[in-house]
């Protein structure tokens, strides 16, 4: 018996974008891969550097959510009922304009995360290849939102594109990509045999080669749910911090007990999502640390969005923090 239920259109838009364009927001391949120009990474090799377009996507999501929440002032659940495209049309602006409205500095920051990650891994002695404009999003959101049938088909395309690299190992920047490749693909997609690693694990293995990070203050680690609970990676982050000489403070909820940043709720329940991020920021700031560190694009975006104007505490991705050591 087929269940025919109309879900909020925003979900279907995301689904369509992934399936048709290989990216949840239909970003163009050139946009997603622009960060790599400076590095000219080969398309084939042993270790495939995989961004999945996720860090690059983050400022766009925020911009969309801001628009949706803005349009939703009446509290009518507007964003859900209308869907992203409709809202944008109704407001007299098209999606491309919204995309264009993302601040250049935000785009640059998140694109740079990918660049920095690649440089760090190279400096640690890893030989990377990269799919460039051909790289496809992992499909983690298809899994997350229940579009499993679509993921079965789309996953085949992803696997084909990964295979073209000839790589034995894939290193994922986003824990969501790592999770879906490692835990879901083997059960849903045929012919997936690549070893899946996270950026954190790769760095951890060679952490004695990391340059020290000069940072007078302490950091507080926000464990991402997927990394800590699904992938069991938490001590590694502390070890890495020790290697670079950074003092770590622990929030009242961390590691396997970490508090979600609220990010997963952003598309459907932006207000709730924001409130949850706010509260998590509170827990992290309570430690008095100078910087909140995370290792997930969505946590980074959600926590950044949750910090109050004028807050003393910065939010950085682990990648950005480690790169401080290389930048001097």
């Amino acid at each position: 018996m087929a269940v025919e239920m109309k879900l909020p259109p925003v979900l279907d838009i995301i689904r369509g974008n992934i399936v048709k364009h290989g990216n949840p927001l239909a970003l163009k391949g050139a946009e997603v891969a622009s960060w790599a120009k400076r590095l000219s990474l080969p398309a084939q090799g042993e270790i495939l550097f995989y961004t999945g377009g996720e860090y690059q996507l983050v400022p766009f999501i925020d911009s969309l959510v801001k628009t949706m929440t803005h349009m939703d002032q009446g509290g009518k659940g507007f964003s859900l009922m209308m869907g992203v495209r409709n809202i944008l049309d109704k407001a007299g602006i098209n999606a491309e304009k919204i995309y264009a409205s993302v601040l250049a500095k935000d785009k640059e920051r998140f694109n740079n995360v990918c660049y920095k990650a690649a440089v760090i891994l190279q400096e640690l002695g890893y030989d990377l290849c990269y799919g460039g404009e051909q790289e496809l999003y992992s499909g983690a959101l298809l899994y997350e939102l229940g579009y499993w049938q679509d993921l079965r088909e789309y996953g085949q395309k992803v696997v084909q594109s990964l295979k073209q690299s000839g790589a034995k190992t894939i290193v994922c920047l986003s824990p969501h990509a790592a999770e879906v490749f490692k835990l879901v693909y083997p059960k849903l997609v045929k012919g997936f045999q690549i070893e899946v690693r996270t950026f954190v694990e790769m760095v951890w293995e060679k952490r004695d080669k990391l340059p020290a990070v000069k940072f007078d203050d302490s950091v507080v680690i926000h464990d991402s749910c997927r990394l800590a609970r699904e992938l069991g990676i938490d001590q590694e982050l502390r070890d890495i911090m020790e290697s670079v000489g950074a003092a770590v403070r622990e929030p009242m909820r961390s590691r396997k007990w970490t508090t979600c940043c609220g990010g997963p709720g952003k598309l459907l329940f932006p207000e709730i999502s924001h409130k949850i991020a706010d509260r998590r920021i509170g827990e992290l700031e309570e430690t008095g640390a100078g910087v909140i560190l995370t290792s997930c694009p969505y946590c980074l975006a959600a926590l950044q969005g949750g910090t109050k104007e004028g807050s003393e505490t910065g939010v950085e991705d682990l990648i950005e923090f480690l790169y401080r050591g290389f930048a001097v």
């Binding site: 018996m1 087929a2 269940v3 239920m5 879900l7 899994y143 997350e144 939102l145 229940g146 579009y147 499993w148 049938q149 079965r152 879901v184 693909y185 083997p186 059960k187 849903l188 997609v189 045929k190 012919g191 997936f192 045999q193």
Partner: peptide, 23 residues
């Protein structure tokens, strides 16, 4: 929750769910 979302989207046909023989 994941499986129920899948059922909402795809109906309750079992073969769409996760299986262990795919790879």
């Amino acid at each position: 929750v994941g499986e129920l979302r899948n059922r909402i989207v795809n109906g309750e046909e079992k073969e769409i769910g996760l299986d262990s023989q795919a790879s």
